[in-house]
């Protein structure tokens, strides 16, 4: 008998909260991206847990798609960071005020 699903859900909730706090308090855009990855992983853990609890493979298929979307998001996001870094010396979120019209 494996660990009850509630423990996994609690762990995923804590992981999601840690990622959300990191996204809010950090100013380095790269670290903010990593915090988004933490939150995505918390969601993935939840999906796999429900997949096991409900004995339905659909949750795992959804995790598969989340992985693809996360990869695409990181690629475009890092491209944006590189493009912004051409103009500014720093990669902090405060430097993005150049986006203001």
């Amino acid at each position: 008998m494996s660990v009850p699903g509630g423990w996994y859900l609690a762990l995923a909730a804590i992981l999601f909260s840690v990622g959300a706090v990191g996204l809010l308090v950090r100013r380095n855009v790269l670290v903010m991206f990593m915090c988004i990855e933490l939150m995505l992983n918390a969601a993935n853990l939840t999906l796999v847990t429900f997949s096991r609890m409900l004995d339905d493979i659909g949750g795992q298929a959804l995790v598969f798609f989340v992985l693809v979307v996360a990869a695409a998001e990181v690629v475009v996001g890092l491209g944006l960071v590189v493009a912004i870094f051409r103009r500014r010396e720093n990669a902090t979120a405060d430097d993005l005020h150049i986006l203001k019209g």
């Binding site: 990855e37 847990t49 997949s51 096991r52 890092l78």
Partner: peptide
């Protein structure tokens, strides 16, 4: 590790290959 613990073996492998192998390397 927790994916394997929940019998999601394929996703665990994909997690290591795609995330740790590609995304973090990109970072």
């Amino acid at each position: 590790v927790l994916f394997i613990e929940q019998q999601a073996n394929f996703l665990a492998a994909v997690q290591v290959i795609v995330y740790a192998g590609a995304i973090v390397v990109l970072f």
